[in-house]
């Protein structure tokens, strides 16, 4: 029972930041048809900037709880500045090119951005645990649970709900949905596609950076950690169905739980269980579990 609870909470915590990151990835894919490997770099940049800011705020005398403002600030700065710059200079020139070539281009971009991190922030790891001290722990079923992790679960839920509402309840969201369904038709209908692309890319970048910024206080932010998350987020969105928001949620939950289970109970399979599940899903549902509807072309 205790074990089950631990797996559940661990899995949820894990799923929550995976979901935030994957959400950005899947929305960008759904709208722009670009599988953006550089998303991993937004994540890493978000984490680095957040850890750096928390350190700065702390030395300025801000309280542990107060340093948490670094999280949204870092996410916004990275998303709005780095995301915009990259969309304007590189991504914009890739629209309409071969899908796989675009992936490779964003992979190149990812490698470049990773090394620029080293040039800017240096090779030494950053530690910024302050926000986790500020959050009180909670007893659930007799087990002590880390308060910060629980806050992450809540935040990811809120973000999921907001995204859902934006896409389904606002005029703007309906434009986006129309483009996901059939971009040629959307152009014909006079939707300003380049502007929607730009906005969605930047929003996706903010989400990627937010995932990194939120996780930063719980780990040592060190070089190369953007890689793991991008490969895992791929698994998440492929399992859920590229371009689907509920898919990203289910995918993140599945991957999070599997990881938690494997780490605690069956470490031998930890490294590949996610990929095995991803392969299995692709074999039986080639489009993923929740691929969004597309216009049928004959």
């Amino acid at each position: 029972m205790n074990l089950l609870l631990t797996i559940l909470v661990e899995g949820l915590g894990y799923a929550s930041y995976l979901f935030i990151v994957s959400l950005g990835l899947t929305v960008i894919f759904g709208v722009l048809k670009i599988l953006n490997v550089a998303h991993g770099a937004f994540y890493a940049w978000g984490a680095y900037l957040c850890a750096f800011l928390i350190g700065e705020f702390s030395t300025m005398g801000v309280s542990d709880l107060g340093t948490m403002v670094a999280i949204p600030i870092a996410a916004l700065i990275v998303g709005l500045i780095l995301g915009s710059a990259i969309e304007r200079t590189i991504i914009k020139n890739l629209y309409g090119r071969d899908e796989v070539l675009i992936v490779l281009a964003t992979f190149g971009l990812f490698l470049v951005l990773e090394d620029v991190i080293l040039l800017v922030f240096g090779v030494d790891p950053y530690f910024a645990y302050q926000p986790t001290y500020a959050m009180p722990g909670v007893q659930i079923g007799g087990i002590h649970q880390d308060g910060y992790k629980l806050s992450m679960i809540v935040v990811s839920l809120v973000i999921g709900l907001i995204s859902w509402a934006v896409l389904n309840r606002t005029h703007w969201g309906k434009l986006v949905t129309a483009i996901i369904y059939d971009s040629e038709l959307a152009v014909a209908m006079g939707i300003n596609v380049p502007r929607v692309f730009y906005t969605v890319f930047v929003a996706g970048a903010v989400l990627g950076a937010l995932g990194g910024a939120y996780i930063a206080p719980t780990i040592s932010v060190a070089p190369g950690f953007g890689v793991e998350v991008i490969v895992l987020s791929f698994a998440v969105v492929v399992i859920g169905g590229l371009g689907s928001i509920p898919g990203a949620a289910i995918g993140a939950l599945l991957v999070g739980m599997l990881r938690a289970y494997a780490v605690l109970q069956w470490p031998e399979i930890e490294l590949f269980v996610v990929y095995a599940v991803m392969a299995a899903v692709l074999i039986f549902r080639p489009e993923g579990l929740f691929a969004p509807a597309k216009a049928r072309k004959i």
């Binding site: 992936v103 590949f272 990929y275 392969a279 692709l282």
Partner: peptide
């Protein structure tokens, strides 16, 4: 049965399974 991204990713998944098995 797969093309483009799905072909690329499915191959990645298979290779990571072998990687995971070897490491452990």
């Amino acid at each position: 049965r797969y093309r483009e991204i799905f072909f690329a990713m499915l191959n990645l998944a298979f290779s990571m399974v072998l990687f995971g098995i070897l490491v452990k």
